[in-house]
Nucleic acid binder design. Structure first.
Length: 647
RNA sequence: GCCCUCGUAGCUCAAUGGCAGAGCACCUCACUUGUAAUGAGGGGGUUACCGGUUCAAGUCCGGUCGAGGGCUCCA
């Protein structure tokens, strides 16, 4: 009785004849949607025979790992279609990514939109044939010969980086590609495909090497899922902060001012001021001291900090005046350090928390600029905490609590924590001081434990001077963005010779924490615009209430209503145009103004307002005083629970 | 910076190599309006910029600038 015992993820187990293929087990277990499987933790094709007892976990399209298999096979299908349509194409790499797949080709010319349509159509034809995908083992030498004969120099180079002999290939319908796998059992499940874009991409991500042509695509087991995905992309476009920023008159970029140098229009500047006040007040209540420092500094300051050596390429070149070399500051920390150094500090007064919404200038390469999200002049919600080593954990915990509070008020959700640590093997990217790193990393873990927060560790993602916590927030497309960051720094205190006087009246070295909570005002603005589709919660709305008089004779009463609200700090305008009420409502809705107050004969006579909410529509009549009280209260509560308005 | 795509009125978009147009917005006039667009009229353009091909260029070609999608970068 030659059997193997299989344990499944649900805890059950079953016995099968040795050599049974996973596909047969899946059928037997009713796991018809399995695309591949994890066998003892290793991903395998369903064609894999079971040769010994094993733990098996099915991977379907519902699992990230299953999707990766699906998209990886889709990438092979893309390569097959391109190879059939462009026989001269040389293949590079084609992995699955978070949202689909891509494949890099060298075909000696770029792909155009018509090419994408043809390739996509060919992929669908190939998938419909439901060809079997099989894994084959090819002796290394044979693969080398084949690549050389076909001129597949990229594949040949990839093979050099692989130690296996034989190496695995996957073959479908006469097309084959060197690949580790696993893959789908056949091409049939790939029923809906969309090729989304083409772009240039450097071979191996190295800008000194060949520029290849990359095709991005996505695929699904069913058309409905593809349609839903494309609808999400459309929704993201509708919310794009660059479009909403223009439509709602929040900010503008003009060529005459320069690349990456946006102008904040009055409405956008209002939101910016509100964010500035909000975070400044919150920090003030938590013991931060706000300062103002200049946007320029002597280049000497950055030579001391070490930034000049590490970061010069991203700084604007120095201006020479009166024998001095000045640079636009690319960060604020050296200025804050000088404020700390301005006088002596006792161990009793630490921690010192110096904060500033400081404007910084970074020379970003032109290709990376994007709306407000990536600019060359930006104002960072920055602060530097100078503390004793024994205070580090407490201070770190305090910063994380501050972040949590800000996210509650701003309505940021779905975020997670990433501890970015050094890669101990990379001796060039990180400051060399093993004891310092170990201590800092241990203290961060301890703080996270005390906060009872889950986090992921990301080795190699630390900054050069110390480990950090990044708070990742998913944007409209579900992609994570780093919004807040808390960085431990033992390095700059050393560079600048920072001190405090200890209990024993001897000088000691403080530790620094660099932290940004709401990122730069530019990036936070971009993020919030997209999150709210421009329909800011009442407390952040640039115009909170608009009064709509029915006819000219009601304009006087409308202004009285406006004054009552303005006296309570509300931002209110009157639409005194000669349009019909429907038109005024439409205009206010399109500007996403939270409340519209319709006032006519009845309201003027009774001292009321007819309230319309942008999200809930007509809410009926309110006594003016009652509405004022309600709306003032709602703004103070910073509620952000009203649904985004329809387009 | 590199690859590709794109650049027409404030916005969204038309215009086979053959007279630069529409809707919205703006201005004027009339209407005095009750919960998502009242009607009529008017102004607004070196078709991003520079050069070339052509009898003729928004359209074709080259360059520059800018934007977008990626690559690279993000201490």
């Amino acid at each position: 009785m030659d059997q193997v015992t299989v344990r499944f993820a649900d805890g059950s187990s079953a016995a099968y004849p040795r050599g049974t293929q996973l596909a047969a087990v899946a059928r037997d277990r009713g796991a018809g949607d399995a695309l591949a499987a994890r066998v003892d933790g290793v991903e395998r094709d369903l064609a894999t025979p079971l040769e010994r007892d094993a733990a098996v976990e099915w991977l379907s399209f519902a699992d990230p790992a299953g999707r990766a298999v699906f998209w990886h096979s889709s990438a092979h299908l893309l390569a097959q279609a391109v190879r059939e349509l462009f026989p001269q194409a040389k293949l590079a790499i084609g992995p699955a990514i978070d949202d689909g797949f891509y494949y890099d080709f060298d075909i000696g010319r770029p792909f155009g939109p018509e090419d994408l349509a043809r390739i996509e159509a060919r992929m669908l034809e190939l998938a419909a044939r439901d060809e079997r995908i099989e894994r084959i083992a090819v002796p290394r030498a044979e693969a080398q010969r084949a690549f050389a004969a076909a001129g597949e120099r990229y594949k040949a180079e990839l093979l050099e980086g692989i130690a296996d002999d034989p190496v695995s290939f996957y073959r479908q319908d006469g097309f084959q590609d060197m690949c580790r796998g696993p893959h789908l059992a056949s091409t049939g499940p790939i029923r809906a495909i969309k090729l989304l874009s083409t772009s240039g991409a450097y071979w191996r991500g190295d800008e000194r090497r060949e520029m290849l042509q990359r095709i991005y695509g996505i695929s699904f087991p069913a058309q409905a899922a593809l349609d839903a995905h494309l609808a999400r992309i459309e929704e993201a476009k509708r919310r794009d902060h660059r479009k909403v920023g223009r439509d709602l008159e929040l900010f503008a970029s003009v060529e005459e001012v320069g690349q990456g140098l946006p102008l904040w229009l009055p409405r956008g500047a209002t939101v910016r001021r509100l964010l500035d006040r909000y975070i400044t007040d919150l920090e003030g209540s938590l013991g931060y001291e706000h300062v103002h420092t200049p946007d320029l500094a002597s280049v000497e300051l950055y030579k001391i900090s070490g930034h000049w050596d590490h970061y010069r390429d991203n700084m604007y070149p120095p201006m020479r005046v009166d024998g001095e070399e000045l640079v636009l500051r690319p960060m604020n920390c050296p200025h804050h350090i000088m404020i700390y150094k301005h006088r002596q500090h006792s161990y009793r007064e630490l921690p010192v928390r110096i904060a500033e919404l400081g404007t910084m200038y970074r020379y970003e390469r032109s290709g990376v600029l994007s709306g407000l999200a990536r600019v060359r002049a930006m104002t960072l919600n920055d602060a530097h905490i100078f503390c004793r080593p024994d205070q580090l954990t407490d201070e770190f915990v305090g910063v994380v609590r501050l972040i949590q509070q800000a996210y509650r008020d701003l309505g940021l959700r779905g975020f997670w924590y990433r501890l970015s640590l050094r890669d101990p093997r990379d001796r060039t990217k990180f400051v060399q001081n093993d004891a310092m790193w170990s201590l800092a990393e241990a203290q961060l873990r301890e703080a996270m434990r005390r906060l009872e927060l889950d986090y992921e560790e990301a080795p190699g993602e630390a900054s050069f001077y110390g480990p950090k916590l990044d708070v990742q927030v998913p944007n409209v497309l579900g992609k994570d963005e780093t919004i807040s960051t808390v960085q431990i720094d033992f390095y700059l205190p050393e560079r600048f010779g920072l001190e405090y006087i200890g209990e024993d009246s001897q000088p000691r070295r403080p530790v620094m924490i660099h932290r940004g909570v709401i990122s730069t005002l530019e990036r936070m603005m971009a993020f919030l615009i997209e999150q709210y589709a421009g329909a800011f919660p009442l407390w952040l709305a640039p115009e909170q209430v608009r009064v709509l008089p029915i006819a000219d004779r009601h304009v006087g009463y409308a202004h009285r209503v406006r004054s009552e609200l303005a006296a309570r700090g509300m931002r209110v305008e009157v639409d005194a145009s000669s349009e019909r009420t429907g038109h005024k409502i439409r205009a206010a809705q399109l500007m996403k103004i939270p409340y519209m107050l319709v006032v006519g004969d009845r309201e003027a006579r009774e001292g009321t307002v007819s309230v319309r909410s942008r999200s809930r529509g007509d809410e009926g009549s309110y006594a003016l005083a009652a509405f004022v009280a309600r709306v003032v209260d709602e703004a103070a509560s910073r509620r952000h629970d009203d649904a985004p308005s329809a387009p």
